Amino acid sequence: MTDRSHAALMDDTYRYQRWVYDATRAYYLLGRDHLIANLAPPPQGRVLEIACGTGRNLQHIAQRYPHTALYGLDISQQMLRSAGAKLGARATLAQGDACDFDPRAAFGVAQFDSIIFSYSLSMIPDWQAALHHALDQLTPKGRLHLVDFGQQHRLPAIARRVLNGWLARFHVTPRHSLPMVLSDLATAQGLTLQMRDLYGSYAQHAVLTRT
């Protein structure tokens, strides 16, 4: 069931921002194209982006991997309006909560070969539940890809303070414990984890693979 309070907050946040979202976020949501370049879905594979926003990433995936089936989930109807206008029939979109969506009800399929979180875990209140739920929707040998704000440990202290203060205005909380959480998940579920810092620890990119 969709968290109505969070859905309302996201709709309020992006009701007008969605019109300028892609132009403004290009300057600080770094690493999204790195994720897409390394996505490598199987032929005819199903790709789901959780918290797909305006559909920017799905549009780029459609161009790079034209034979994939694309799906997008977002809690905000406002963002889905932008994504629908951008993607048309190229992707199947649905409103839902990242922590408890039903893929069959939302999309008519049970599992996905690739699942993406792109700068979304830092905005999902129960982000660890969202990770667990996403892993349940992966096919055997499926891969979960994510890019988000990093631990920032290589950035100057003043840069960290300014960045995190500014992000808080948009309900964004970098998940500094993400590497440890992913390592624990990989161990508990027998997954392969690949992880790397990007841009001097500004961002982090990770891939969890079912083996």
Rank of each mutant, 00 (worst) to 15 (best):
L193C: 11
G31C: 03
M180A: 15
L87M: 02
M123Q: 08
P140I: 10
T209R: 15
A26K: 12
F107L: 11
P41T: 09
S76T: 09
S183F: 01
L29M: 10
V109H: 04
P66Q: 11
G108N: 13
G88P: 00
D3Y: 07
F101Q: 03
M10A: 05
L146H: 05
P156G: 07
V147R: 06
A51M: 06
A83D: 00
L35D: 03
A40L: 09
L208I: 10
H171G: 04
T211D: 15
D33I: 00
Y65K: 00
L138D: 07
G88H: 00
H60G: 03
S177N: 12
L70M: 01
R154M: 02
L138E: 04
H133G: 03
H205E: 06
R169C: 13
L146M: 05
L185D: 07
Y71T: 03
T13A: 15
S82H: 12
A105H: 09
Q78M: 08
D148I: 06
D22R: 15
I158Q: 03
G96C: 03
V47Y: 12
L198F: 10
H205W: 04
H153Y: 05
F112H: 04
A91I: 07
Y199I: 10
V207Y: 06
P43H: 01
Q189C: 10
P103V: 09
L35W: 13
K141F: 09
G31I: 04
Q77I: 11
R210N: 04
G53S: 09
T192W: 01
P66D: 11
A8K: 13
I50R: 10
S183W: 03
R64E: 10
M195L: 11
H60D: 06
L93S: 08
H145V: 02
A206G: 06
Y21W: 11
K141A: 11
K86R: 15
Q151G: 08
Q78D: 12
G142Y: 04
T192C: 02
H176F: 12
Q95M: 13
Q95H: 04
Y202L: 14
F101T: 09
A203I: 03
R169T: 13
L93D: 10
H6V: 08
L35I: 03
Q111P: 06
L208M: 03
D22N: 15
G190Y: 06
D22W: 08
L185Y: 00
V20C: 14
P43K: 04
Q151M: 09
I50P: 05
L155K: 02
Q95P: 01
S114D: 07
L73S: 10
D3A: 00
